[in-house]
């Protein structure tokens, strides 16, 4: 077995230095359309072309609701006047239920946070990005985050997917089984607003219908760094993204 030890050592350190230093590698994030000072027929056609109503017209031009964006790229590819595009990944915001209370879990959870991942009915992309958090590049253990298979040990619930009718009950039961204090991070457009799937006869319009959501991470799927930021926001170790919406 010594060959594996040597192999591991030879590979060296791959981990990103985020959150101390921003990650600049290519391909870590799909980005989002940015608010663009644009009016008239061009703006209207872009807003009308958005399949999930993530774009809207405001006093500043075209406004973007990141929670609803599913990265279809229709507002930049093939558009007469493409919207501005922003890269980055620190998108997590405090959810509606997180605003009324101190969103920090507090010092006891500084370096040992156990996370229960609940897939409440997504397409598998969000879940795969959550899995990447354990790969050597993101290595969530170095930040004191650990995945747990049981709600009894969990401090934070990470929900992905539009909650399907079949998972609604299981999600609620898992939340109730978690000891307090507990926080919920909803990741992905489906968990925030139903995404492409909901609301429909079988999918709801987000996890907030079933459990109180403290932190919202937009993206479809949110890249691993965005989920990591959401977790850091949930325990008060990183400020949430600025702005409303």
């Amino acid at each position: 077995m010594s060959q594996w030890v040597i192999k591991g050592l030879r590979t060296g350190i791959k981990s990103t230095r985020y959150p101390n230093v921003a990650e600049t590698a290519a391909g870590v994030s799909p980005g989002f359309p940015a608010e663009t000072n644009l009016g008239g027929a061009l703006a209207e056609s872009l807003v009308a072309g958005c399949p999930t109503r993530a774009l809207g017209l405001g006093p500043q031009g075209v406004e973007v609701d990141r929670r609803r964006c599913v990265h279809c790229f229709r507002c930049i590819r093939g558009a007469k006047r493409p919207l501005d595009w922003e890269s980055g990944y620190e998108w997590a915001r405090i959810g509606a239920d997180g605003a009324h209370r101190d969103h920090r879990l507090g010092r006891p959870f500084g370096r040992s946070v156990h996370i229960l991942v609940v897939d409440a009915g997504d397409c598998g992309a969000c879940l795969n990005e959550v899995k990447q958090l354990n790969n050597p590049y993101y290595n969530m253990h170095r930040l004191g985050f650990f995945l747990t298979p049981t709600p009894r040990h969990a401090d934070v619930m990470l929900v992905v997917g539009a909650v399907t009718e079949h998972m609604r009950h299981a999600l609620r039961k898992a939340y109730d089984a978690m000891p307090t204090p507990k926080r919920v991070v909803a990741a992905g457009a489906c968990a925030l607003c139903g995404g492409v799937f909901g609301p429909s006869f079988i999918c709801g319009s987000g996890a907030a219908e079933v459990v109180p959501v403290d932190v919202e991470v937009p993206g479809n799927p949110p890249p691993p760094l965005a989920i990591l930021h959401g977790l850091l926001v949930a325990v008060g170790r990183r400020p949430p993204a600025n702005g409303a919406g």
């Binding site: 590698a25 290519a26 391909g27 870590v28 994030s29 799909p30 980005g31 599913v70 990265h71 279809c72 790229f73 229709r74 590819r77 992309a125 795969n128 990005e129 479809n220 799927p221 890249p223």
Partner: peptide
């Protein structure tokens, strides 16, 4: 990351 850098999306959405 190769997929993301090349096509804008890590899972080829869009």
């Amino acid at each position: 990351r190769i997929s993301g850098a090349l096509t804008g999306h890590r899972y080829f959405f869009g």
